[in-house]
Design a protein around this nucleic acid. Sequence first.
DNA 1: TGGGCTTTCAACCTCAAGGTTGACGAGAGG
DNA 2: CCTCTCGTCAACCTTGAGGTTGAAAGCCCA
Lengths: 134, 134
Amino acid sequence: MEVVTTDALSRVFAALADPTRRDMVARLSEGDATVSRLAEPYRMSLQAVYKHLRVLEEAGLVSRPRGPQPRPVRLEIEALDLMDTWIERHRDRVERRYRRLDAVLAEMETDGHEEGHEDGRRGRPEGAGHPDDA
Amino acid sequence: MEVVTTDALSRVFAALADPTRRDMVARLSEGDATVSRLAEPYRMSLQAVYKHLRVLEEAGLVSRPRGPQPRPVRLEIEALDLMDTWIERHRDRVERRYRRLDAVLAEMETDGHEEGHEDGRRGRPEGAGHPDDA
DNA sequence: TGGGCTTTCAACCTCAAGGTTGACGAGAGG
DNA sequence: CCTCTCGTCAACCTTGAGGTTGAAAGCCCA
């Protein structure tokens, strides 16, 4: 069966990997809208838009009461927060690591060594390697 | 030829939509690593890992000198910043909007007006509609 | 110089993603 | 009541993503 059960984070990232969907989110961040209203700007069938909407919904980025009448689609920010958390975490780690490296390099420079950093690159000690999880 | 030229943002989001790739980024945020070292924990061929790496590279999330010897893979944070910026922008918009709505609703409640919200959500004025870009 | 290790490319397979068209159902409004 | 519209579902098509195997190439070392 392999019910892939793609994890939440993957769904959110994947949902936002599509420019159309990202644009929808952008527009929804300004205010709710009905499906057909949302579809207006795009050169694709209403059904396609509906599908995109479903992707966003399954990613938790959007919520809406289902039904035939013109019902509004609303943006939910929890999913954005989810991504944000992930990104910040790793970005911080990298930055911390860079800072550490800079310190090490600075110390090495007291030996009178100069770094070839014309593109702002740091050295890479390639240490660590902790196969830690996400 | 259709050089799709997927935009940068799409590439970054898509790159992180895969759990394996996300794990790679997580591990790289702790320190650089060679391709084979990176591949160790995963139960897939080395070539598959290499492909993932290429995706990350094209998304600008990773950089590495190409060549036959064991060369280190390094995480680049600019791409993370790119996403971060996008996310924050829209999240802020939504939050501002929610705050505004809350204010409006609070004001309306002084009139004793009822809202058709069977799912506990806030009201939706559906105004704006600026098909503004991402 | 030959062997082994690493990285890389290429051909192939499978399946899901994004899109299309066609049809259906429920409300709103004449 | 009939109809029009909006949202929804379903079947189908095409392409690209993720994986595999096989093989080529460059560097290091004995």
